[in-house]
Design a protein around this nucleic acid. Structure first.
Lengths: 337, 337
DNA sequence: AGCCGGACTGTAATCGTTTTCACTCCGTTT
DNA sequence: AAACGGAGTGAAAACGATTACAGTCCGGCT
C-alpha cells in the first residue's frame, strides 16, 4: 500500500479522508465520532497503510503502556516461563513488555534500570541480584517495582516469591523419610533465594537432629561439580545433596558420573525447578516445582494494583511449591558404608 | 536528585545551568560546546538527576536505534544463545534490542511484525515460521530483515543459517559408520529447517544405499514420543533415529524409556543442538552443535552491512555445525534382530 | 582600521501524536 | 420563542527532545 517512500502518518490519513487530524486520532482511540466520518477514516487508514508511531504517541500521551521485566538468567526455564506469563498478562492489558537479561551481573542491572527510566516504563518486574537488592531502596525510580523470586529484606516493594524455606524443608523431610541422614546442601551465593533455601534446610535438619552441612557457590554447574567431587572424598561424605538451583543439579549429576557413583545408591540428589530434562537424567531427579505461571500472573496483578493505589502498603505474596518425587531420591538401601 | 515529583527534562537542566536547551542537547550528544559550559551542564545534569526521554529523542531524531529480534521459541537454548550474541553486538553499537517470542505461531508473528513497524525499528532479525516465510516478500516492511535459522526459498532477504543438509548428512554418516542401517528420521513440519535437514538425511541415506524413512511432526516432545512408540512396533522397526530438534530428542528418550529399550543398544539416537542436558541423559546424546555465537554476530553484521548499503544484493551465510559424539550412538552391537 | 572566518551559543521550527478549547449544529426544555 | 445542552468537529497547543539557522564574539589578515 505504501505508494510514496515514507510511511503514512496521521496527517496523510486526515488528508485522504478529508477530515482533521483530531478526528483521525479520535477514530483510532474510539473517541466520539459520527459513523459516517468513522467509516471514511477507517477506509483511509487502510488505503494509506497507516501505522501509528509509538514514540510520538508515548511522548504526547505521557504513558508508555510498557512494563519492564528484568530477569537474572533468560536461559533458566523458570524465568522463561515467568516471562511468558507476564507477557501474556501484559498483552491482555494492552501493554508491551521490555525483557532484559541481567545475567546476575549488577552492572548490567544498573544499565537496564537506567534504560527503564529512559523508556519511562509504567512498572517493573524484577529479579535482582543481592547487590542491587541492597541498593534498591535508595534508588528513587519513578515507577513501581514488583520483585520476583528474590526477596527484599526491607519490605518496601511488592514481591512474589516461592516459600523457599518451606520448599527446602520439604526436600529435607522427603530425604529423611527415605532413610537418608547425611544430607548436604549446596546453595547459590548470589541471591537471597539461596539464603532462604539454606535457612529452611538448616532449620529442617536441626529439627530432625541432623547436622546441617552447607556450602555456598557461584551459580554455575562447574562450581557444583567440583564442590561435590571434593566433598565426596572428605571424611564425612554425604549420602545425599540438596541443591538450590538447576545448574547445581547438573553439576551434581556430572560429579556422580565422574566418581562413578550411581544415583541414588551412591549419591542421592534433589533440587529446584522442574525443568523438562530433569525427568530424563538417570532415574529422574526429584525436584521442587515452582508455580511459574502463577508467579508471573501474580506479579502482574500486584503491579496493576500498585498502579491503581500507589500508596497502599507493600504486599508480599508467598506461593507454595510442589515436590515432584523421582528416582534420584529412592529409599536408601540398607547398605552399611 | 529529584526534588519535585516529575523527572527533570532538558529544560530543567538548561535552567539550572543557565544555558539554552540547545547547548544542553549538544553536551549530551558531544557536540561543539566550550569547556566551561560543558562542565556547567554536566554538573546540572547530575544535580537535576536528568534522564533523557527516549520517546522524544526517537521521535525528533527519526531513528530508533532499536533492532527487533523475533524468535520462534525463547525456551530453546539455541535462540537464547543467539539472542545473547545479538544483544551484545547491538549494545556495542549503541542500539537496543526488542526481543519477541512468536512461539511458532504465525498470528503472534504478525502481531510482532506490526509492533516492529510501529516502533520504527531500524532492522529485524527474524526466525519465521514457514507460513510467514511465504508471505514475507509481499509484506513491504520498511526495515531490512535478516533471517536466522530458517531459510527463505526466494533469496530476497539476507540470511544466516546452519548448513542443515550437511549436518544431517554428518549424522547419517556417523550412524552408518557405527554400524547402523535402519536409520529413521523425525523432522519438524513447521520450519524450513526441518525440510532441509530431511533433505540432507534423504540424500545421505540413498547415497549409501539405505532406505530413508522419515516422518514429519509438530515440534513437541509428546508428538515424537508417540511417533517413536508407534513406529517401534511396526514391521521394520528402526535401529536408530535422527531427529531435527531437541524437543524430539526428549521425545525419543522418553519413548525408549517407556519401551524399556536401552540406548543405544535397543535404540540409538542423534539430533540437533548441544544443550547442556544432552550430556547428562542416558549415555549422553550425540548431537550437532550449532555455532550459536557466530550466528548471532553474523546476523548483526549482515544487518549493519545492509543498513549501510540498502541496495546491495542479498547475501546468504551458511555456517557449518560440529558433530558431538556421545554414547547414544555407540557402535552397533553385532546382535541379530 | 575594517573584514573575514571559526567557534560557540541561542531562538525557533520540527518530529507525529493526543488533547484542550472553542465553535457549530440541532433537538429539547422552559 | 428564547435559552440550553449535548454531540461532533477542527484549529492549535502541547509532549521533550534535536537541529537548522542566525547571531555574537574574537583573533588574525590585509
Amino acid at each position: 500500500m505504501s505508494v510514496s517512500g515514507k510511511t503514512a502518518g496521521i496527517k496523510d490519513v486526515a488528508l485522504a479522508a478529508g477530515v482533521s487530524v483530531a478526528t483521525v486520532s479520535r477514530v483510532l482511540s474510539n473517541g466520539p465520532v459520527s459513523d459516517t466520518l468513522r467509516k471514511r477514516v477507517e477506509d483511509a487508514v487502510r488505503a494509506t497503510g497507516y501505522r501509528p508511531n509509538l514514540s510520538a504517541r508515548r511522548l504526547r500521551s505521557q504513558h508508555s503502556q510498557t512494563i519492564g521485566l528484568v530477569v537474572s538468567d533468560i536461559r533458566n526455564p523458570f524465568f522463561t516461563a515467568v516471562s511468558r506469563a507476564v507477557e501474556d498478562a501484559a498483552y491482555r492489558a494492552g501493554m508491551r513488555v521490555i525483557l532484559c537479561n541481567s545475567d546476575e551481573n549488577p552492572e548490567r542491572e544498573e544499565l537496564y534500570l537506567r534504560l527503564m527510566q529512559e523508556e519511562r516504563i509504567t512498572g517493573l518486574i524484577f529479579a535482582p541480584t543481592r547487590a542491587t537488592l541492597d541498593r534498591l531502596d535508595g534508588l528513587d525510580l519513578d515507577f513501581p517495582v514488583v520483585l520476583i523470586d528474590r526477596n527484599a529484606p526491607t519490605g518496601r516493594h511488592d514481591a512474589v516469591v516461592l516459600d523457599n524455606p518451606r520448599a527446602a524443608a520439604m526436600l529435607v523431610e522427603h530425604l529423611h523419610a527415605q532413610g537418608y541422614r547425611r544430607i548436604a546442601g549446596l546453595f547459590g551465593n548470589t541471591s537471597t533465594t539461596g539464603q532462604e533455601r539454606h535457612e529452611g534446610y538448616r532449620a529442617a535438619m536441626t529439627a530432625r537432629g541432623l547436622a546441617p552441612a552447607a556450602r555456598f557457590l557461584v551459580p554455575h554447574a562447574d562450581a557444583a561439580e567440583e564442590a561435590v567431587v571434593a566433598w565426596m572424598s572428605e571424611r564425612d561424605r554425604p549420602e545425599a545433596f540438596i541443591v538450590s538451583n538447576s545448574l547445581f543439579l547438573m553439576g551434581v549429576v556430572k560429579a556422580a558420573r565422574r566418581l562413578r557413583l550411581p544415583i541414588p545408591d551412591g549419591l542421592a540428589v534433589a533440587g529446584f525447578d522442574n525443568e523438562p530434562w530433569t525427568e530424563l537424567v538417570g532415574p529422574g531427579l526429584t525436584v521442587i516445582e515452582q508455580p511459574v505461571q502463577d508467579i508471573g500472573q501474580s506479579a502482574m496483578a500486584l503491579l496493576f494494583e500498585r498502579l491503581e493505589a500507589p500508596d497502599r502498603p507493600s504486599r508480599r505474596l508467598i506461593l507454595g511449591g510442589t515436590c515432584i518425587v523421582r528416582g534420584s531420591t529412592a529409599a536408601r538401601m540398607a547398605a552399611a558404608d
